[in-house]
């Protein structure tokens, strides 16, 4: 187990997903195409932000990295090894190298166990501490790393605030010294004043320990703040990737542009001036996605051949890729349209 845990240098690819498909079959009806051809890689020491609305497949992609869902197509690689077909037993060792922080901190901790016991679990499972004393001191160390007092190990989850519980969730994810931490909406259930604490904590830990994050969120501002690179998902696909500057300043895909224009900002002046690009209708069903470009049914700039050609991600500028036949051009058109309609 430990021999697989090879040293990886900064910038190396920690995890890679190639043409990942995750389809869920509910009884005998057509499968739900939760993830439908996603490729991405996460490099050592970076935060890759995965942003999208509900049903975009962003969480399922995260789960696939721990093999918490099985791929129905494509490959999942962690530390250069193809883990797609690993056995049940072997997958358990994968879950030391990739760990996870969940959205709802209250639900993700066993109410019957002390938080210390929850943090100890990975230590026991992966045999990382020889004795009871070693475990106890490691738990104390982990608690202090996440800004809690060591004596809180004896508390039960219901005796803690939401922010404290999420800190415990982070401590548990750190316990196995993972190569990658999947953060699945880690701040979405927290109060606004606590969200900033958790984001600062995550950034601080990353600097201190050189951690690698996959930060999954629907909160565009949080993703911009946290990420070194961003991937935008829509209906099981990545539609745009790039640095936060590229994505947020110059979105190339019409969906990204619409998403950004829909986010309300805490500035009444700007809100009065703003021209939203309002999308019409709803996200189509992932059971039967539209032909060609998946976004065309809601795209204000869709053309005829959008229905026939499935656009691939291509580079619009170095490091910035979008899956739209009319990238950039379509966005400009939409902005002009939004500016004229009051």
């Amino acid at each position: 187990m430990t021999t697989e845990h090879g040293a990886v240098k900064t910038g190396d690819v920690v995890a890679r997903v190639e043409d990942l498909h995750v389809h869920f079959s509910v009884s005998r009806s057509a499968p739900v195409r939760a993830v439908d051809g996603v490729s991405l890689e996460v490099r050592r020491g970076e935060t890759l932000g995965l942003v999208g609305e509900s049903g975009s497949g962003k969480s399922t992609t995260g789960l696939a990295l721990l093999r918490l869902v099985d791929a129905t197509g494509g490959r999942v690689e962690v530390g250069g090894q193809d883990v797609t077909d690993w056995s049940r037993r072997r997958v358990r060792s994968l879950r030391r190298r990739v760990s996870m922080v969940f959205q709802d901190p209250a639900a993700s901790l066993d109410p019957r166990l002390t938080v210390g016991a929850s943090i100890t679990e990975p230590l026991i499972v992966h045999d990382l501490a020889a004795s009871r004393d070693a475990r106890r001191s490691r738990v104390a160390e982990l608690l202090e790393m996440v800004g809690l007092r060591a004596d809180m190990a004896d508390r039960r989850p219901h005796e803690m605030s939401g922010g404290q519980k999420q800190r415990v969730g982070i401590a548990r994810a750190l316990a196995g010294e993972p190569d990658l931490i999947v953060l699945d909406e880690p701040i979405a259930s927290l109060d606004l004043s606590v969200q900033a604490q958790i984001m600062n904590l995550l950034r601080g830990l990353q600097e201190q320990l050189g951690l690698t994050y996959l930060f999954i969120s629907h909160d565009l501002a949080a993703v911009e703040h946290m990420s070194d690179r961003v991937a935008v998902m829509y209906l099981g696909r990545i539609v745009e990737t790039g640095t936060p500057e590229q994505i947020y300043r110059n979105p190339a895909h019409p969906y990204t542009a619409a998403l950004l224009s829909a986010v309300p900002t805490a500035d009444p002046e700007a809100e009065r001036r703003r021209r939203r690009i309002t999308l019409h209708g709803d996200v189509p069903s992932p059971v039967n996605p539209p032909s060609g470009c998946r976004f065309r049914t809601r795209c204000p700039a869709a053309r005829d051949n959008c229905a026939t050609t499935d656009p691939e991600l291509y580079e619009v500028e170095p490091g910035h890729r979008a899956a739209c036949l009319y990238a950039v051009e379509a966005v400009e058109e939409m902005r002009a349209g939004a500016a004229t309609t009051p």
Binding site: V91, R92, S93, R95, D110, S118
Partner: peptide, 26 residues
């Protein structure tokens, strides 16, 4: 179906351990 069971799976706990440690007490 509870998240804390999924969390136990995510840290690599075995089925036996999950049943004993998380499911039974709950």
């Amino acid at each position: 179906e509870q998240v804390f069971v999924q969390a136990a799976v995510s840290v690599g706990a075995s089925d036996g351990r999950i049943m004993r440690r998380h499911v039974l007490p709950n």
